[in-house]
């Protein structure tokens, strides 16, 4: 299996496109940081964190009092309120969004890594068919499920690598472009306010967005191996990635929305303050996603191992 994975890895990095994609990602992240710094320098940000925290606190109080918040959203608002009160009482400044710490605390590499991993996942089986190499690949003394597994592992590895490169690039550009502005991230743990390390939280965000990378890439992998067309796989995967939240919005009145994959794909919502549905929790999301993931893989493997190669 290791040798098969080595093969997939070699094929992947022998394509110029892969290097271009990885390079593009690094450039994009640096450019985004540069643009952020530039637009930030245009604003005169002399606002007092105490004032904004105070208004945030009022906001949360109002929405909690109005009773529209339920479930997870309500819990998050309550936590937020508790943190705001703690900050004002103990004089602990929050992180600034456009600061070195802010960027590391909330790295935004997920969507770029997702896009690139989807492209690779869509093509890894489909391209064997379009190049005609599938005949060479499958006439070896290796069972098809092993080949499929090596391809899937290669995708996951590629995804992890991109996330890591993305995170490192983010850290570097954070240090290059932004000064340290202090501040302390806080969270609620067991009812108490605790301090949070920006590094730990950054990695946690990375992990949550990696789940989305896995799900979308597995979907692309399935479409690519069933229909043998990478274009279609890329198209459909990005379609569900971009329109997912719209579909959730449209169907929000119905119970079924809880079980749709779109509702759960972006797990970073549990770390922001906007959750697509009031009745879901992180663990529920993970269960739903796992079910979809397994279904995608069953379809991919079954079609691939049963198919007669006639092309």
């Amino acid at each position: 299996m290791l040798k098969l994975l080595q093969n997939e890895w070699m094929k992947l990095w022998s394509k110029k496109g892969t290097w271009i994609m990885a390079g593009l990602m690094v450039i994009l992240i640096i450019a985004m940081a540069g643009i952020m710094k530039w637009s930030y320098s245009l604003m005169d940000d002399e606002s007092d964190w105490k004032l904004s925290t105070q208004s945030e606190l009022e906001n949360d109080k109002n929405s909690l009092a109005s009773g529209v918040l339920k479930g997870e959203s309500k819990r998050l608002a309550e936590e937020n309120l508790q943190i705001s009160e703690y900050r004002l009482a103990n004089d602990v400044a929050p992180l600034k969004d456009f600061s070195r710490e802010g960027m590391i605390y909330n790295p935004s590499v997920g969507s770029i890594a997702l896009l690139l991993t989807v492209i690779v996942a869509a093509g890894i089986v489909a391209s064997e068919f379009s190049q005609g190499t599938i005949k060479m690949l499958l006439t070896r003394p290796v069972k098809r499920w092993k080949i499929m597994t090596s391809k899937y592992l290669a995708i996951l590895l590629f995804g992890v690598l991109l996330m890591l490169i993305g995170f490192i690039t983010t850290i570097l550009s954070a240090f290059i472009f932004f000064p340290s502005e202090g501040g302390q991230a806080l969270a609620i743990s067991g009812g108490n306010v605790v301090e949070v390390s920006i590094w730990g939280h950054g990695l946690y965000i990375l992990l949550l967005s990696f789940v989305n990378v896995i799900i979308t890439a597995t979907f692309a992998f399935m479409i690519g191996s069933v229909f043998r067309s990478s274009g279609m796989a890329i198209g459909l995967s990005l379609f569900i990635y971009f329109t997912g939240s719209v579909i959730v919005g449209l169907l929000s009145r119905f119970e079924i929305v809880k079980y749709l994959i779109f509702t759960h794909m972006d797990l970073t919502m549990y770390e922001s303050n906007y959750i697509l549905n009031d009745e879901i929790t992180l663990s529920f999301s993970l269960v739903v996603l796992a079910v979809y993931l397994i279904a995608f893989l069953i379809v991919s493997y079954t079609v691939f191992t049963k198919r007669d190669i006639t092309a």
Binding site: K3, K11, S14, Q131
Partner: peptide, 22 residues
């Protein structure tokens, strides 16, 4: 099987290495 379709973006040697590993 028919025209041997190899991985065009790799060298002949890497192609052989690929199949040797299998």
């Amino acid at each position: 099987v028919e025209n041997p379709e190899m991985y065009k973006f790799m060298s002949g040697y890497k192609n052989l290495l690929h199949f040797a590993r299998m």
